[in-house]
Design a binder for these strands. Sequence first.
DNA 1: CCGACGTACTGTATCGATACAGAAGGAACT
DNA 2: AGTTCCTTCTGTATCGATACAGTACGTCGG
Lengths: 356, 356
Amino acid sequence: MKATLQTIADELGVSRSTVSNAYSRPDQLSPELRARILSAAQRLGYSGPNPTARSLRSGKVNAIGVLLTDNLSMAFTDPYAVAYLRGLAEAASARETSLLLLNLPKDEAAGRRVISNAAVDAFCLYCVPDWHSALELVRSRGVPIVIGEDPQAFGPEASYVGIDERAAARRLGEHIVNLGHRDIAVVAHWIVDDGVTSQVHADPDDLRYYVTGERVRGFRDAFLAAGVPWERVVLINAAANQREEGAEAAAHALDRLDRATAILCTSDVLALGVLDALRVRGLQAGRDVSVTGFDDIPEADAAGLTTIRQPSVERGRLAGELLLDPPEDPALRRLTLPVSLVVRSTTGPNTAKEKS
Amino acid sequence: MKATLQTIADELGVSRSTVSNAYSRPDQLSPELRARILSAAQRLGYSGPNPTARSLRSGKVNAIGVLLTDNLSMAFTDPYAVAYLRGLAEAASARETSLLLLNLPKDEAAGRRVISNAAVDAFCLYCVPDWHSALELVRSRGVPIVIGEDPQAFGPEASYVGIDERAAARRLGEHIVNLGHRDIAVVAHWIVDDGVTSQVHADPDDLRYYVTGERVRGFRDAFLAAGVPWERVVLINAAANQREEGAEAAAHALDRLDRATAILCTSDVLALGVLDALRVRGLQAGRDVSVTGFDDIPEADAAGLTTIRQPSVERGRLAGELLLDPPEDPALRRLTLPVSLVVRSTTGPNTAKEKS
DNA sequence: CCGACGTACTGTATCGATACAGAAGGAACT
DNA sequence: AGTTCCTTCTGTATCGATACAGTACGTCGG
């Protein structure tokens, strides 16, 4: 039989309310009585108010639900995701709030149960496939939501912290075409049925994953403005957002007669893999082939990678703050953060002979 | 006014129990009525039983609390920790249980509140400083606990999944002394007050962090057995378990006249940093200087690092299983997993001229 | 025709706390 | 002395569900 507030109250002959106050509102009772209560609690092995009961009554859980797809290790492995989570955890921790990691299993019914059963004050969605079936259920829970990707995904009532993915990607594309590149490959990660890293013919509007789609469309915007038709661009699907897949993907751009002179990637992780592939082939990034990434993860600096810097930690931190201290003004709940183009050594002028 | 079970019950003129059964025990009512209930719920914007209330009544939360020190990014950055968490999440997810990340803040009172308020069915402790003040509170919560480090930390009632750290380290030490090395440095991460990477004079029994202490003691066991006194060993404190600090620490072993011919590290991450430092100095690992790690993280293979392989993912998975499906027999709740010595290219015979 | 049984649903007690109105008693002020 | 106020504690209602015993009603074998 576990001790409860009532156990302590009976022991000391005081009311349950008073014992509750000893924990939750110490100013409501005399210090002496409070000391007696706490020592009786210690003696009886009572470790403080039951969190579940407290949550039921007070309506607060002090937890944010973080939705992760079943590919959970991605959330820990991808440097951008780690940075985001760190920012989120910082904001939460500062408010004595914890993160509940909700790993959505493949089975749809099980996923619905996980969401329904999650005791949380709010949900944070990031890196969640935007077509996932359980998302509607998240909204129906009626708690605050913050999203980090498609600003339209949940309608205007959801908070949003993101960047203008497309405009940012366009800046990378412009940088590349301004350097004179015309034989261009794009390495992107999205979901295709076979899940193999390979060259594909795809319309950027068909790519699953909002972020990937926007970034590729941004590249295309730049190419079209410079007179490079999309058909001339080699689009390569990376089966996962991993360095190895980036290297794999690069093979499709490098090991052919009309070798690309520039490879744009939808993430730094993929770009690092592309750089690996260059190294293996004795090619020099920035001279023989230009390479760009996206995100500016810590490793990008050491690799000299030209990329878009985005405030990843800040994104997470702001997401947490929007959930826990929402501003009155709805406009302030939809934040688009600035990014910057970071030009390093992996991009340079096109030195290849111009095709006839 | 949010809808509850009662709202739906009133709407349809049935009892609250029946509505509850529609969600939790579908076999207790006719399919037709259940369909009517679910559709009324949809109409009234009811998203299923309130998780908090359900938890209060049923006594289950479907969450495991994972204690992390305030250095939260470590948990996501350290490859061993990531692997462990992945295993834990796998075991939890298979049982529709989520992980509640409890980030203990520096402030002690706040840390106690975080632990007290955590609605969890069990706690998992790993990578938590063993001297942390909040740990006693964890035990007093009276829920199952699994620990991953010092098997004695919580007494026999806590489950335990670990390895024999000391014996494993001893195998590395024996490998090194068998190769003829006598001028040895040890790079270890523990907590000292100034938090600077530097050579120190310390007794292995004084190192804070159980794991570091055991591993260093294991090294010493091997040295002593081979006749190498501990005083001859250079012990270097790495300020953090990070690659950069490993490189920094290596300087203290390499940039001196009596250069060490072998450097043993308490983790692969540190060892990778030591290898970086060798490379910068034009030294070859395994020929000029032998280097060992610990853990066998994925990067260790590529680096050719001699190390101890331990089942990191498995450790996490078993921890989750012990918490969620505890075996009857208490002996089966205390698991010591096997490890293996993996000899790769970073260790080799001592080729330095023997000191006079 | 009767008792046993199964199905479908109901009603009340309960999980363990907090909120809030209120009571008792003493101090302070007029 | 009477009023007000403050401090300190009490008592009841309530948060939103589930457990479990109980009821109503049909079915079925003997």
